[in-house]
Amino acid sequence: MQKIYTLIVLMAVVLLGTSCNDEWKDEQYEHYIAFRSPLNNKGVTEIFVPYSRKGADGSSQEGKSNYQLPLIVSGSTNNQQNIKVNVAHDPDTLQTLNLARYQHRTDLFYVDMGEENLGFVSFPGTVDFKPGEDVSLLDISFDFRGIDMSQKWVLPLTVVDNASSDYKSHPRKNYAKAILRILPFNSFSGRYSGTTLQNFVKGDEGSGSIVANTVTGYVVDDHTIFFYAGNIDEDRTDRANYKLFAEFNGAETGGIVNFYVENPELNFVNHKDASYRIIEEMDAVRPYLLRRYVIINNIDYEYSDYTAVPGSSITYIVRGSLTLVRTINTQIPDEDQAIEW
């Protein structure tokens, strides 16, 4: 009798196990369409794109680049059908984000680079998924020539669906929408250490200096970046008036940096010819990591801050050096993916 009971229990366990395993063959969730674009604490997804991207043959056209944005089909099983997903420019979501985050500070608003009249960006209106594919890529093309990086450029996108669509966009809004903060870069742009760059009020150099932990260099073209003069940063409403351009002329290991401005009201005077050098070394612990240093020496200039105090102008002296460090994973072939931002 005991053997019969044992056999019955074993059969029940087998049947229950088979039933549980069969459940996982069925879809447990919906096959929603979503972007792979996680948001940061500023409500956007930072995308670093080369100012000029090299083609397969090693050639490039200045200011032309692209980025491939992943779209995914969610669910516990693989997609088994052909899907044509509609993607569109989404200025309404950007407007909502700007108002919610910055309210009346319109000078801090993100600027929509997807406006057709600007000509900075283009992308196809559809993305195709084939059976067996759960990830597809939206190829976004950029033309950065003439872009002013004193503006905070973003590209807002959305997955579009309707009653006739054979798919559903993800019900979570931050999944079905992408707010891409576009950050083009060249070999010299990025966050420099500013601890050795000193800012003095002219005529009062003995009273101490103003030092910033980081100083950001923004792309202008393949060989030129701009900083904000002195201690000006992107929180200043009139920051665009204080752009200090740095043109790098030389070989791969170093050369001359030509500093200049386009705004005559800065009363800019350059006291020395600045230079730069580039040092590359492999990481001692992780030998596949390359550390690339760009060091700008002999910075010595003066400029006038003519808007901080209404009706008066303050002249500053800026002296010292700047250092940019880039960590590059040599095992990754794509330049923008290889850099550890």
Rank of each mutant, 00 (worst) to 15 (best):
I4Q: 04
I8G: 06
L10E: 01
L10H: 03
A12T: 01
V14S: 01
V14Y: 04
L15T: 13
D22R: 08
K25H: 03
Y29A: 12
H31R: 15
S37P: 07
S37I: 07
P38H: 05
N40Q: 09
N40A: 09
K42R: 14
T45Y: 12
I47C: 15
F48V: 10
P50G: 04
S52K: 06
G55Q: 11
S59C: 12
Q61D: 02
E62V: 00
K64A: 09
K64W: 13
K64R: 09
N66S: 15
I72H: 01
N78S: 10
N82V: 15
N82C: 07
N86H: 07
N86A: 05
H89M: 05
P91V: 05
P91F: 02
L97M: 09
A100R: 15
Y102I: 00
Q103S: 13
H104K: 12
R105H: 12
R105C: 02
T106S: 03
V111H: 11
V111Q: 09
D112H: 02
N117I: 07
L118G: 02
L118S: 04
V121W: 01
F129Y: 07
K130W: 05
E133H: 02
L138Y: 14
L138I: 12
D148M: 06
M149W: 00
S150D: 05
V154L: 03
V154N: 14
L155T: 01
P156Y: 02
V160Q: 09
A163W: 03
S165P: 00
P171M: 10
K177T: 06
A178D: 10
R181L: 15
P184E: 05
F185I: 05
S187R: 15
T196Q: 15
T196F: 13
G203Q: 10
D204A: 14
E205S: 07
S207P: 06
G208H: 14
V215C: 12
T216E: 10
G217I: 07
V220W: 02
V220P: 05
D222A: 11
D222R: 11
I225G: 05
N231C: 10
I232Q: 14
D233R: 12
R236I: 00
T237W: 01
D238N: 13
K243N: 02
F245A: 08
N249E: 12
G250S: 08
G250M: 08
E252G: 15
G254L: 00
N258A: 05
F259T: 01
V261N: 04
E262I: 06
N263S: 09
P264L: 07
E265I: 05
F268A: 02
N270M: 13
H271F: 14
A274H: 04
Y276W: 03
I278K: 10
I279R: 06
E281L: 10
M282L: 04
D283F: 04
R291M: 06
R292H: 00
R292K: 06
N297C: 09
N298L: 08
I299T: 02
D300I: 02
T307A: 11
G311A: 06
G311F: 09
G311Q: 07
I314N: 11
I317R: 13
L322A: 13
T323H: 08
T323N: 09
T327L: 06
D336F: 13
A338T: 00
E340M: 01
E340W: 00
